[in-house]
């Protein structure tokens, strides 16, 4: 059940150049949060009439809500200045998230801060009673350079194997996240093993992962990032084209099946 909660800031810290981790005491929102869902945050430092800003849920655990974000515009720069002890109004959890079960190996593919919902997903996939052939998730994470690869320590603590790629080759494979992904897909197909794809990141990455899911006939779960206004399906601003017409990212998504998307 979604709630509009006054959440106290527990921690707000840097985690790379321009990247921030915001930890909130939000027991009501955290209780029902599922991976791939988002929260709609009223940024206290903005004027009262400014729109809310949507954020993926990086983690929800023990009444705490974690948001991993990059300061990219007016809203996120303003959010930067919020300090521990202050209160932030959080509406959520919202939207349709990832499934929490997986047939075969979960292949998580992230680009930049698109990694955020994948950590929560990895945690849940490891906790959920398993379908046939349970496998630990594998993460394929891409970024421009080494410092754009976020939360590697958190994934390591879960025991998730990370295949990193950077555009400049400063860490992991040189290139996009699909380079190590394609190697793993080839290996799994040769072994006749089941897998599902889960992704979040820039549209280029989402498109590449969707194409692979559709062409390989594997389930692909694609989390689309769009600017939003209401966050609850009322305004029709955050549209994603699908095979059945214009869908609302906030309620029909943000996670779509690969075959639903029309780019």
């Amino acid at each position: 059940m979604r709630k509009n909660e006054q959440a106290k800031v527990i921690l707000h810290e840097d985690c790379g150049p321009g990247y921030r981790l915001l930890v909130l005491d939000a027991p009501q929102v955290a209780a029902d949060a599922r991976p791939g869902q988002f929260v709609h945050v009223k940024v206290p430092a903005l004027e009262a009439s400014a729109l809310r800003r949507p954020f993926s849920i990086f983690n929800a655990e023990d009444g705490r809500l974690e948001i991993l974000y990059k300061a990219v515009g007016r809203g996120t720069f303003a959010l930067n200045g919020v300090r521990p002890g202050e209160t932030v109004e959080v509406l959520g959890p919202l939207g349709r998230g990832f499934p929490e079960t997986c047939r075969g190996t979960p292949l998580l593919v992230g680009g930049g801060y698109g990694v955020a919902p994948l950590y929560f997903l990895a945690r849940r996939l490891l906790q959920t009673p398993k379908l046939p052939n349970p496998q630990t998730p594998k993460l394929f994470l891409g970024g421009r350079t080494k410092t754009d690869l976020l939360a590697l320590d958190r994934f390591a603590a879960l025991g998730v194997e990370v295949f990193a790629a950077t555009n400049d080759g400063s860490f992991g494979t040189k290139g996009f996240a699909v380079v190590p992904l394609d190697a793993e897909l080839a290996r799994l197909r040769a072994a006749g093993a089941d897998f599902e794809l889960f992704t979040c990141g820039p549209d280029g990455l989402l498109k590449a992962v969707s194409e692979r899911a559709v062409s390989l006939g594997a389930p692909g779960w694609i989390s689309v990032d769009r600017h939003m206004v209401c966050g609850v399906g009322a305004c029709y601003a955050c549209i994603q084209r699908t095979v059945t017409g214009n869908a609302r990212c906030c309620v029909d998504g943000p996670v779509f099946k690969a075959e639903e998307l029309a780019w």
């Binding site: 004027e47 009439s49 305004c235 549209i239 017409g245």
Partner: peptide, 25 residues
């Protein structure tokens, strides 16, 4: 009849308000 509305982007935040062109989807 059904109506698809406008292409994205459909909104822009401005100081003191919101400019929208949802297009009546």
């Amino acid at each position: 009849d059904p109506w698809p509305g406008n292409p994205m982007p459909r909104h822009a935040e401005v100081v003191g308000g919101l400019v929208n062109a949802i297009g009546l989807q």
